[in-house]
């Protein structure tokens, strides 16, 4: 986690990509959280950055090789408005992740960890690489 002089440029590039590939203004959701997607040979892991969201406010569903994560980040302090500063994003959010390779929808597991939602999606056996022995 060391910083180079190009980090801000990378961040700008990434934010622009997110603007153009995200659902944008046509979505009725308040915001779409950042997702890091990781993979290895047997599974995908999606890490969703949703600090301050309770476990029971999140819905995860799977259909047609795509994963949908939606929920609502409420602010319990909304009623007592005497805000000096309000920067944290609140409201409904949604992200859809489409997978390139076939995944096993029935075996998806999810856990919350310090404000990150970790969703593990195992790849289907057909998608795994097959080793070929040379005779």
């Amino acid at each position: 986690m060391y910083r180079t002089i190009f980090d801000d440029l990378y961040r700008l590039n990434r934010e622009m990509n997110r603007l153009f590939t995200g659902p944008g203004k046509y979505s009725n959701k308040a915001y779409w959280p950042e997702v890091n997607l990781y993979e290895n040979q047997s599974e995908y892991v999606a890490v969703v950055s949703i600090p301050g969201v309770e476990k029971d406010k999140i819905a995860i569903s799977y259909k047609d090789n795509s994963l949908k994560i939606s929920g609502e980040k409420g602010s319990e302090n909304e009623a007592k408005t005497n805000y000096h500063l309000k920067e944290r994003k609140t409201g409904k959010f949604e992200r859809n992740i489409m997978f390139q390779e076939k995944v096993e929808g029935g075996k998806i597991g999810a856990e919350m960890k310090n404000g990150f939602l970790l969703v593990k999606i195992p790849k289907s056996p057909e998608a795994k690489p097959v080793t070929i022995a040379i005779k």
């Binding site: 890091n36 997607l37 993979e39 892991v45 950055s49």
Partner: peptide, 12 residues
Amino acid sequence: PVEGYGCVNDEF
């Protein structure tokens, strides 16, 4: 958050 994986989509 996860270790030993390759990153496919990197947003944060």
